[in-house]
């Protein structure tokens, strides 16, 4: 395997992705990601110099809304999905 994924990398990606992996999962993740990156490295065989990165397939641009209020209040329905709510707000663990 050409790509060796370190514990630090897996921990770092865990912080970015907000995933807490068990020791076992970490080992598996290191293997999986290493293999995937080996496979992805195949892309290096291609000469892509001078090729513009393509995010959108079609050259569509300028899709806009007019600045007009269209939405009403649907708070009760939306909050019904919240795991915890209080006084019309989404309740979360203290952030400060």
């Amino acid at each position: 395997m050409a790509n060796i994924i370190s514990d630090e990398t897996i921990d770092y990606v865990g912080i970015l992705a907000k995933l807490d992996l068990s020791a076992e999962e970490k080992e598996q993740a290191k293997k999986d990601m290493g293999r995937m990156l080996d496979y992805i490295d195949k892309l290096n065989e291609l000469d892509v110099s001078g090729v513009e990165p393509m995010s959108h397939v079609f050259p569509v641009h300028n899709v806009f809304r007019e600045d007009v209020v269209t939405n009403g209040d649907d708070r009760e329905n939306m909050l019904a999905n919240a795991p915890e709510q209080k006084q019309g707000q989404y309740q979360v663990p203290k952030t400060v």
Binding site: L16, A17, E25, M33, I40, L46, V48, M54, S55
Partner: peptide
Amino acid sequence: VKRRIMLGSFVLSSGYYDAYYLRALRTKAL
């Protein structure tokens, strides 16, 4: 899902974006 989230977070992370993500978008163009 976790496997793909981890991979996706990695290829976008600092220092890897060009090597993986942009290269993939260039390949897509080809």
